[in-house]
C-alpha cells in the first residue's frame, strides 16, 4: 500500500485538491455566506431580527414539533428495531422498506397526504367533524398545529430506527436468546442487554431526527398557512426572504444563522459519536 501511495503522488495530490475544492465551494462557502449575510446590518439589527414576535412564535412551534417528533420516533425506532433485529419472519425486508418510505418521497407529498386524509376532501374529515360535534371541541388538523406535528413526525419517521438497526444486527441476538432461555423477562433483557448495545446509535438517531425536525420545510409548508401561529422557523425564513425588502432579507439570514449553528453542533456531535464508535471497534 505504501509503495502505491508514493508512486501515484501526482494523482494523489490532484484528487486531494479536487476533493478539498469541492467541499470548500459546495459546503463551506454556503455556511460562511449565511453568517456573513446575517450580520450585514450590524449586530444590533441581528439581535432585533431574531427576537421579533413572529420569530419567537415560530421558534416555539418548531421546538414543540421537534420534541413531539423525537418522542414518537424514538419510541417507534426502539420497538421496530427490536422486531426487525431480534426475530426472523416473512416480509422483514418489506417492513424495513416501508419504514424507509419517508426518506425517498418528496416532503410536499407528505404534506399532501395529510391534506387528503384530514382536509375537507379527505375521508377522515367527516369523522373529525363528528368527533368535534360530539365533544364540542373544534378539532382542526390541516392548517393547524396538529398538521404541523404530523408532517414533522412523517418526514423524520425512519431516522432513529435506521441508526439502531445496523448496530443491533452487528451485535446479533445470541445474548438475548441465552437470557431468554435462562428465564429473563422481555423488558429485563432489553434493559440489560439490548439497550446498552444500542445506546450510542440511539443518541445519534435522536440528534439526526431532531436536526431534521427543526429544519423541515416542504411538508410543513403544505400544512401551515398562518404566520405567527403555525409557522415554524423555516417557514418564517421563507416569509422573510420572499417579502423582498432588504431588511427582511437580512433578517431571513439572521434567523437562518440559528439553524446553521444547530446544524454545526449536530455535525460536531456526529463526529464525536463516530470517533467513539471507531475507538470501541478498535478495542474489540
Amino acid at each position: 500500500m505504501k509503495k502505491e501511495q508514493q508512486g501515484s503522488a501526482a494523482t494523489r495530490n490532484i484528487l486531494i485538491i479536487i476533493a478539498i475544492a469541492f467541499v470548500v465551494i459546495m459546503l463551506v462557502l454556503p455556511l460562511a455566506a449565511v453568517i456573513g449575510n446575517s450580520l450585514k446590518k450590524g449586530f444590533e439589527f441581528y439581535m432585533h431580527a431574531i427576537t421579533a414576535k413572529y420569530v419567537i412564535s415560530a421558534l416555539k412551534v418548531t421546538l414543540l414539533a421537534t420534541v413531539v417528533a423525537v418522542g414518537v420516533n424514538t419510541f417507534f425506532g426502539i420497538i421496530s428495531s427490536w422486531v426487525i433485529t431480534k426475530f426472523s419472519f416473512r416480509g422483514k425486508q418489506l417492513l424495513a422498506t416501508l419504514i424507509d418510505i419517508p426518506f425517498s418521497i418528496s416532503p410536499v407529498i407528505a404534506g399532501l397526504a395529510f391534506i387528503m386524509t384530514f382536509g375537507r376532501l379527505g375521508w377522515a374529515y367527516p369523522i373529525l367533524e363528528n368527533i368535534s360535534r360530539i365533544t364540542g371541541m373544534d378539532i382542526q388538523i390541516v392548517f393547524a398545529l396538529p398538521g404541523v406535528l404530523l408532517a414533522t413526525i412523517f418526514v423524520t419517521f425512519p431516522f432513529v430506527s435506521r441508526e439502531i438497526i445496523p448496530v443491533l444486527n452487528a451485535e446479533g441476538k445470541d445474548e438475548e436468546e441465552a437470557a431468554a432461555l435462562m428465564g429473563a423477562k422481555g423488558f429485563y433483557i432489553f434493559r440489560k442487554i439490548t439497550f446498552p448495545q444500542m445506546k450510542w446509535a440511539l443518541v445519534y438517531g435522536i440528534i439526526l431526527c431532531a436536526a431534521r425536525a427543526l429544519g423541515e420545510f416542504g411538508a410543513v409548508a403544505a400544512l401551515s398557512k398562518t404566520r405567527g401561529e403555525t409557522f415554524t422557523l423555516p417557514l418564517e425564513i421563507d416569509a422573510l426572504y420572499l417579502s423582498g425588502d432588504s431588511d427582511s432579507l437580512v433578517a431571513a439570514f439572521a434567523v437562518s444563522s440559528i439553524l446553521v449553528i444547530i446544524a454545526i453542533v449536530v455535525l460536531i456531535l456526529r463526529n464525536i459519536m463516530e470517533y467513539r464508535a471507531k475507538l470501541r471497534a478498535a478495542e474489540k
Partner: peptide
Amino acid sequence: LPFALPTAVAGIT
C-alpha cells in the same frame, strides 16, 4: 452538512 442544514436555509443561501 447537507443532511444537517435545513433545506430552506440551503436554498436561500
